[in-house]
């Protein structure tokens, strides 16, 4: 399961919409061992493509440092599909580095964005539930 505070859910969708017509991407951080996303790091798409994304490596470095300083760790990545459904593509599966990560895909195919989350383990795709978080538990916005 992935638990997304409303503010972070909105931040993910806003970054994906701002990236159109290219795919947009970013990283998610939580407390170690937890599934509540505490910070969202919108990153540049170094591939600058409508069909591919590469999290800008330097943005990843800075996000990783910020998360570490806040007692968090990077637990997943999000990216948009501008014209296809919110399901991992063969490229997504082939390049998924971490079986412990959450892979969030946002589809902008229809007028209302669709956000779904997956675990990708040994090439197998498992969709997981995405839920909100009670207001009192929402994390801080990333600097």
């Amino acid at each position: 399961m992935l638990r997304l505070p409303g503010e972070i859910h909105a931040q993910i969708l806003a970054h994906c919409l701002a990236g159109v017509p290219e795919e947009a991407c970013g990283l998610l951080a939580a407390e170690p061992g937890d599934d509540v996303v505490r910070r969202c790091y919108p990153t540049r798409n170094a591939a600058a493509s409508a069909k591919l994304y590469t999290v800008d490596p330097k943005d990843y470095l800075h996000a990783d440092r910020d998360a570490e300083a806040a007692g968090l760790e990077i637990i997943g990545v999000f990216h948009s599909h501008t014209h296809t459904d919110a399901y991992p593509s063969p490229t997504d599966v082939a390049q998924a580095p971490d079986p412990a990560w959450h892979y969030v895909v946002v589809s902008l195919r229809h007028s209302v964005p669709a956000l779904r989350s997956y675990r990708i383990v040994g090439g197998d795709i498992h969709e997981e539930e995405v839920t909100g978080v009670d207001e009192g538990m929402t994390g801080e916005r990333a600097g």
């Binding site: 069909k51 591919l52 590469t54 470095l61």
Partner: peptide, 10 residues
């Protein structure tokens, strides 16, 4: 020294 995986997809 920081090691980071390339995070990419389609």
């Amino acid at each position: 020294v920081s090691i980071l995986p390339a995070v990419a997809g389609g």
